[in-house]
Structure formats: C-alpha cells, structure tokens
Write a protein that binds this DNA or RNA. Structure first.
Lengths: 144, 144
DNA sequence: TGTAAAGAGGACAATTTTGTCCGAATTAAA
DNA sequence: TTTAATTCGGACAAAATTGTCCTCTTTACA
C-alpha cells in the first residue's frame, strides 16, 4: 500500500507531533528507536518532510525536529503521503492505466472507486493531533 | 497498491478468460500487446499463474494459455492477487506493524479497517467472468 | 521422422527502493 | 573561541522489483 519510506514518514510525524505537544524536540536516533525504523534512512525521510514544510528542523547543538503546535491539527495524513509517495495511491487507477475514468474505465474501475474513496477519506480527514493524542492515551501504538 | 507484476497478471488473466470463452488460446506475444506490457516479463508472470493453477498452459506447437470455461466464473481477483502479491495488501496493517489489532492497534487501525474491508470485498467478490464480459461488451478496457 | 512453434526455466541486466556512511555547515554553551 | 551536538547533502551499497535473453523441452503436423 504505502512505501516503507511513507510508513516511516507517517510514524515519525506522529512521534514528532506527540513530543511537540509537550515542547520537546527529538532527533533521528530517538525517533527511529520509537518507531522501529533504520536510523539513517529515517534521517533521509525527515529531510524530505522538512523540505515539504511538514516538520521544522533546528540545526546545531540542542537541535532536532518539531512541528509548530498550531500546525499539528491542520496537517493531514494526506499531506505526508503526498510528500513522500505522491497522490497516485488514492487518485490513480487500480490497474495502472494512465487514463481511467467513466468514459474509458479499466475493468475494476467501478468497484475500485469505492476503495479509493475510502482511502481518500481516511487520508484527508485524519490530522496529526488526533493520531498523537491516541498514542498519548495509550490507545494506539507506533511499534510492536 | 498492486505491484506491476500483479497488474499485468490481472489484465493477462482477464484477456485469457475473454479468449477462453470463445475457445481461443493465446500466447505471451498477443497478451502483452493487448494489455500493453513487456512481453518477456509477462511470460514470467504467466508461468506463476500456471504454477498457481489459475491458468492452464499447453506446450508445443499450437500451444498457448487458456482457462477452463467452468473455472472462469469461480476464479476471483483475490486468487490472482494472492498468487502474485500475497494477501498483505488486503489483510495487513496499513503502517506495516506485524501485530495490529483491536488490542494493540496502530494509529490508523480503526479507519484503515474500512479501506481494507472495501478492498477485500472488491477482490473476493469479483470473478473473471464478469470482468471478461465487460471487456467483450466494450464497457471496460485493458489498455489506453 | 524431421521441423517449426510453442511454453519452461535459468541466467543476466536495469531500475527503483531501501539503507549506510561521511564530511560540511550550523549552533549552543563552556 | 573552541568544542560538542546537531542537521544537511552527496556518494555509496544492498536488496527488491522489473525487465531481457537464451537454451531446453514439448508437441502438432507435414
């Protein structure tokens, strides 16, 4: 479904949000430990998230990653997925046709529309705040 | 969503079914032309479909690929996806957690369940016959 | 029985994804 | 002003996926 990079990116964003709610900066070492991902690869993904204005980085000693508190409730899963995997997963054809619409549909088109719509809804209606709060309350987890 | 191999495998199966309904065998050359896929790679995928008892192959002169007419309505998309990509796409966790369930859910678990259910329904309720008939009626297409 | 047409399968190559390492730049604090 | 803790970015490496090619075997038919 999502690439590994995207999975790590989503989990990292949630973990950073969780800490930013308490004014704590975190670095790749702590992040990769808490989301169970390879550290150097995670650092690369964090760079991409920074370039896409999803997280802020503070360089130098006492630096790290954070998300502006006011942004935590407006950043959606769709923003993160878009930044890393693009929108093909929730906008593209299930069989990879470049043109696939009601006029010239692939064989799965009608039924796949429902899957895509459900996924689109999930990504566009879920913000980082609600995800981070669930973690905080111990109602969901970032690793096994 | 699906791998390229799986996309080609689905399209190839539909095209073979379509032709088997009219007692015509087809080979990798014709298949790859009609589904717009690389021929040699498609041939490899056909081998996998044969090994998984989804299509039959007839070797030698006048050989080719076909699907038993009686099987065309009982082979589901899920069978093809399973044979090539496995079932993780419609059974696994959206964030890649090995264990992800109501007891220890990932942050997306609740909402992602709906996506997975919709996808599972699509794959398990769609048979090759209906897909092939749509193509035959000109109501859907295997390539642009 | 010879030959041409076809699938099977192994080896290989190209590309993409995943992952690592290291030097340079930046910054806080001693 | 030096030092240590950081992020950034490029180069590199490993693994997975995608794709190609060639030989062997099987088979129908002349």
């Amino acid at each position: 479904m999502f690439s590994k990079a995207c999975e790590y990116g989503i989990k990292a964003s949630i973990f950073i949000a969780l800490n930013s709610l308490e004014h704590r900066r975190v670095g790749p070492k702590e992040i990769s430990k808490e989301i169970n991902s390879p550290e150097a690869f995670t650092a690369k993904i964090l760079q991409a998230l920074v370039r896409n204005n999803i997280v802020n980085s503070i360089k130098g000693a006492h630096g790290g990653f954070e998300i502006d508190k006011k942004d935590i409730k407006t950043i959606m899963l769709a923003d993160i997925v878009n930044a890393i995997d693009g929108d093909n997963i929730y906008k593209g054809c299930g069989l990879g046709l470049q043109q696939c619409n009601a006029d010239k549909p692939c064989p799965m088109h009608e039924k796949f529309k429902l899957v895509r719509a459900e996924l689109k809804n999930l990504l566009e209606s879920t913000d980082l705040e609600s995800l981070a709060l669930d973690i905080k309350l111990g109602e969901s987890f970032l690793k096994n």
